[in-house]
């Protein structure tokens, strides 16, 4: 039986990847847009590295963490929209009539996201290296970085799947996007928290889990091995993943209200 289950998961993950690959906009946009923003911000804010206490003298290195989060976001939105479309077209009903277990659907969906997450991470990392960023944590750090980025993708992906399963509407999934973006912007994305002057902004950024995801990735690039940042980053990524997967599983059970 476990063989069958593995086959189901693999096939569903494959479909999720194939479907993404066959909509080039869904690949290009999550790859190009974060890099474009990186270019804009790295160019525009390079002067900020001259602030006393700024942790590095390369803003590109500082900002390189952001694309990993943005890429996960874009991929998640696309995957969530695809899942919502499956619900709208009745494709999910077709799957529900097979002996497939609900968890296979979710695992397959997340499997596709993992594949996209790995590809994206490699591209961002490659671009970073190409423009002269060097990882303080070395090659092992690169590996840890990719693992963390993929874990974040899974967490966000499960949130997207939850939204899709709960609402059954692609538009509802898309409308989550601005919410995610608010979280991203009100974080320590563009400035280290200790250099944010405005009190309420610093408080919000400190309470915002996205700050810790970014800071963990960033620490591997500009600091080296910062246990605290890594523990916080992995901790939050893990917590988000657990909560989101639980929510998505519950929503799936309701959605597949088969007896």
């Amino acid at each position: 039986m476990s063989n069958v289950f593995a086959g189901q998961v693999l096939t569903l993950a494959q479909r999720s990847v194939v479907r993404t690959v066959r909509q080039p906009a869904n690949i290009v946009f999550p790859l190009v847009f974060p890099l474009l923003l990186l270019a804009v911000n790295a160019g525009g804010l390079d002067a900020a590295t001259r602030l006393p206490g700024f942790p590095t003298n390369s803003f590109v290195a500082f900002a390189l963490a952001i694309p990993f989060i943005q890429g996960a976001l874009f991929a998640t939105m696309n995957a969530g929209t695809d899942l919502a479309r499956d619900i709208q077209t009745g494709f999910l009903n077709r799957l529900a009539l097979t002996p497939m277990r609900g968890i296979a659907l979710l695992t397959g969906q997340l499997g596709g996201i993992v594949a996209m997450g790995v590809i994206q991470s490699l591209v961002y990392l490659g671009v970073g290296l190409a423009v002269g960023v060097r990882l303080e944590s070395g090659p092992a750090g690169a590996l840890v970085l990719i693992v963390l980025a993929v874990l974040i993708s899974i967490g966000f992906g499960a949130l997207g799947a939850f939204a899709a399963l709960r609402t059954g509407s692609g538009e509802a999934v898309q409308s989550l996007f601005p919410v995610f973006f608010v979280f991203l912007f009100l974080s320590s994305m563009a400035m280290p928290r200790n250099l944010i002057e405005i009190d309420w902004f610093r408080a919000v950024a400190t309470a915002n889990p996205v700050s810790y995801l970014i800071e963990a990735i960033r620490s591997l690039i500009i600091v080296g091995w910062d246990e605290e940042a890594l523990a916080l980053g992995f901790g939050f990524a893990f917590a988000i993943t657990v909560v989101a997967v639980a929510l998505a599983s519950m929503a799936l059970r309701t959605r597949l209200a088969r007896s």
């Binding site: 804010l45 002067a47 900020a48 602030l51 912007f185 009100l186 563009a190 400035m191 944010i196 902004f201």
Partner: peptide, 13 residues
């Protein structure tokens, strides 16, 4: 809010 709030330190550059 995001730019003016988050980056206010930039005027110390």
């Amino acid at each position: 809010v995001a730019f003016a709030g988050g980056l206010s330190q930039v005027d110390n550059v």
